[in-house]
Computed example of a mutant assay.
Amino acid sequence: MSSAKILFGFHAVTVRLKTAPQSIVDIHVDASRRDQRMRQFLARAEEAGVRLIDSDDDRLQRLCGTHRHQGVVARVQPLPMARSLDDVLDGLEVAPLLLVLDGVTDPHNLGACLRVADGAGAHAVIAPKDHAVGVNATVAKVASGAAETVPYFMVTNLARTLAELKERNIWVIGTAGEASRSVFDADLKVPVALVLGAEGTGLRQLTRKTCDELVSIPMRGVVESLNVSVASGICLYEALRQRR
């Protein structure tokens, strides 16, 4: 089934079993693993009426491209997501909260950012097509189900997209270590897009110039920057705190 995608790991596959079992083509499981966690998982899958296939480690690795599959690999049909960023924004009845990632190319970082975005209730994650990673099986595993719930849009021109958000009266806030104003002093109750760059390199120059303002995350130790998923969590949860 060429249109099927791969999910692997207990958490990512269990989330799909809970939310959309009818979209699962089949689940390949390690025939040699029958510990309590696997038995509970198999019982859930059988209850959902999903086709189970016993496999060995080599076949599981070939399916998902990694040995870190925990003995569970599912072939699934993609779930329908919002077709466009405009669809998401037009459908909101609350102030938009968006996460923009500029230059995040590591799938583990993206997966962790999606997980944080889901937890904080962000409405979408946006990234440029030419400086980002797409949602692959590794991203889905790290995201622990959030890759299924958080709309992720890869745009051709990030600066233009940010300009279009500003036309919608969404305040675009970039993060930069040298910014004098702290993220904790910014007003995040308004419609806002939080823009974060990759660890070390930060925001690209054009992205930085397109932002309405720059804020920093206070750093009290010797390290100069945080992992982008940690920084995303700090910023998004500060927005959530302000909006409570």
Rank of each mutant, 00 (worst) to 15 (best):
V116W: 00
D56C: 04
G145A: 12
L63I: 08
L52E: 10
C113N: 12
L97A: 02
G221H: 05
E213F: 05
E148K: 06
N109G: 05
V222F: 12
D57W: 12
L101M: 11
H108Y: 13
L188W: 00
P151M: 07
A43C: 07
A117D: 04
L92G: 04
C113W: 06
V72M: 06
G233R: 01
G119F: 03
D130M: 09
M154G: 05
R181T: 14
V116F: 00
S144F: 08
L188Y: 04
R51I: 14
V195H: 08
R44G: 09
V125L: 04
A143Q: 06
A176M: 00
I6P: 02
L42W: 11
L52D: 11
K166I: 00
D187Y: 00
I126R: 03
L188E: 04
A122H: 09
L114D: 03
C235W: 02
G49L: 11
A140F: 06
G71P: 10
L110S: 11
L98I: 08
N157F: 06
Q36S: 14
A112P: 01
N136T: 13
A120K: 05
V25R: 15
L60V: 09
L98F: 09
E47L: 09
L240K: 15
L7M: 01
R115D: 11
V50G: 08
N227A: 02
V125H: 10
V190F: 04
R37I: 12
D30M: 09
I170M: 01
I170G: 05
M81V: 13
L240G: 02
Q242E: 07
S32T: 15
V230T: 07
T19W: 03
M1C: 11
R39F: 00
Q40P: 02
M219G: 08
H67A: 15
L162Y: 10
S229H: 07
I53G: 00
N136A: 13
M219A: 11
V195C: 01
F8L: 13
